[in-house]
Amino acid sequence: MAKPPDLSESTDNEEAGLFAAFLEQWHAGEARIEDLCERHPEHKDVFHRWWSRLVTVGEVTTGGEVARTAGPKTRRLGRFELLEEIGRGGQGTVYLAEDTRLRRRVALKVLVGFDTTSGERTARFVREAEMAARLDHPGLCTVYEAGVEDDVPYISMRYVEGETLADRIEQTRSQSSSSGLGTSREFLNDTLLMAEQIARALHAAHEAHLIHRDIKPRNIMVTKEGVPVILDFGLARDLGGDLTTLTATGQVFGTPAYMSPEQVSGQVESLDGRTDIFSLGTTIYELLTLRRPFEAPTREGLSRAILAHEPSDPRKIDPTLPADLSVVLLTALDKDPNRRYATALDFAEDLRRVRVSEPILARP
């Protein structure tokens, strides 16, 4: 059964949020696209365009029904055969697809809620994805190409098999609910090694003048061989050029619980690699403690927490964690970018030092 893209997860765009809420109601049989357009006539052209994209990729039929019977080989986008849905996020849906021209399987991200009416913006979308294609590192998911087919924007990427860190966190959370939270040295060392590898991969991207802006557990895949790979660099931002970001000026990009204070406060144009360090620190904190450093029942409350509240010392949650690790994590989570690690490589080095019981460079 087709599922609605979670377009509201990583954007403040009103149209995307309304469309995502509508799709949830539509799947429950409680809404029609005509009703949505009648309630919000100012957005009807955009909604019809996005609806057409779902028809194009086979999510729904032309009659407005869920595409329940379409076989995997009948769903196409240009030269790509859409085999199955493998993920969804703030910008759209990701499919396992077959590139029939190059005869390889790829992860194809379809950006349902992206405006292609502006030729300049579409060209910028393609150029920014091409910038991400410069990345060549085993810990970074390769971007092959980006384009627009039948008014549907897409990004073709390396297909990485494995499980996300979000999956691992859920598994650990389920196990700890019966056994209690307590970190074994083996688990700690494995986690620290993985975190170090992620930070080193992130540094490689930063050295190529790209920041990710949406580091979170669901955007990090762990392969069957245990190698972490950062996903979704297709909408990374170029630090070295004069291109503006794909999101509108002042618009927040990222997943709220993992955003840095500068992202939350809308300092879009001044972001640098230290915003990714904060998000990675949040991810590692959650991986080790099974709690996020900043939590609140509403998005507004979460924003206030990120901007004004200090995270709890992770040792208050799990006293078995080393004291130096607390210092490392809290340094990465400092609200002032100037007091965080200057580079992801510095972060990686201190994670290594904790793992091998060497003195860390950060100071409380």
Score class of each variant (00 low, 15 high):
M259C: 05
D272S: 00
D276C: 15
G234Y: 04
R274N: 00
V264P: 01
E262V: 08
A248R: 12
R237I: 15
D272C: 02
D238L: 06
I277R: 08
G266C: 03
L271R: 04
D232F: 05
F278H: 13
T255D: 09
G266E: 03
R237H: 12
F233T: 04
D238K: 14
S265N: 12
L235E: 03
T245D: 14
T249L: 08
T255Q: 07
V268I: 14
F253I: 06
M259A: 06
T289K: 06
Q267K: 15
A236R: 09
D238S: 11
T255F: 15
T244P: 12
D238W: 03
T247A: 04
A236D: 06
L246H: 04
L280C: 12
E286L: 05
F253E: 15
T275I: 13
T283Y: 00
L287F: 03
E286W: 04
L280F: 11
T289C: 01
T275H: 00
M259L: 03
E295R: 13
D242S: 11
F278I: 14
P261F: 00
E269G: 07
Q267D: 08
P261A: 02
R291V: 12
P256C: 08
F294D: 05
D242E: 10
L243Q: 15
S270H: 14
A248S: 13
M259I: 01
A248F: 13
L271Y: 00
G266A: 01
F233N: 03
F233A: 14
Q251C: 06
R274Q: 06
S265L: 10
T255C: 11
G241K: 04
R291E: 12
T245A: 14
P261H: 07
D238R: 09
A248E: 09
L246C: 05
A236E: 00
L239A: 07
P256M: 02
D276R: 05
L246F: 14
P261W: 02
V264Y: 04
G273L: 08
F294Y: 00
S265Q: 03
I277F: 09
M259R: 00
